[in-house]
Design a protein around this nucleic acid. Structure first.
Lengths: 102, 102
DNA sequence: ATTACATGTAATCAAATGATTACATATATA
DNA sequence: TATATATGTAATCATTTGATTACATGTAAT
């Protein structure tokens, strides 16, 4: 995948209010959160939170893993934020595109 | 429209390789370009370029106006880039969401 | 065992998106 | 007039996306 496509994927993943809220919630809590916590915190259904988290995970903005904690009803999937710092401006895009040849 | 929604709209508009190329092309050429120039330059059909430009225009990343030049077959729609400088990181999103209340 | 509660995911569906094809208009030239 | 060329947009269609509902599993308490 080209640099440009990768950038587009990340920007696309970030381009939705719910997903921005999910990210903000994950930063606020520092530690990892599981699906239901996230859903409740931002006020959407688990199913919907899952869908948006899936898109974030595909774009490598979050990652997840299952944790089997004792005393818990079942294994939980924990999500954590991967660090990112995206900067987009016309000049920066010009350089990016020229790098990839035409 | 909230700050967060506005940011999401811009990020969503930027989240496609063709649209990133369109922007890069507009920067390269400095001056305004009309639809067909853009389409040829990045190697897509006029119709497709138009669709992507429409999305960029809705997000206020480009703007356009029609110019009636002499010697031309017909009035041409010129596109120009609006300045933007978007910076996204977890910390920045946290602040943005907290501003908008929960 | 059954009831209650909590979790994760699959199935489904309407709406938006990406892309192609075709159409309508306009000028210049044969 | 017709032919060629160039432009802008509308119509169409398959795919993806956003969102809801329902299902399956698992533990704890009755």
């Amino acid at each position: 995948m080209s640099q440009l496509t990768d950038l587009a994927t990340k920007l696309d993943a970030l381009g939705h209010p719910i997903r921005l809220k999910i990210i903000a919630t994950l930063v606020q809590n520092q530690q990892q959160m599981y699906l239901n916590e996230i859903a409740i915190k931002i006020g959407v259904s688990r199913a919907l939170a899952k869908i948006h988290l899936k898109k974030l995970e595909k774009a490598a903005i979050v990652k997840s893993h299952i944790v089997t904690a004792e005393g818990e009803a079942k294994a939980l999937r924990y999500y954590e934020l991967l660090p990112f710092d995206i900067h987009v401006s016309p000049q920066m895009l010009r350089m990016e595109v020229e790098k990839n040849g035409q």
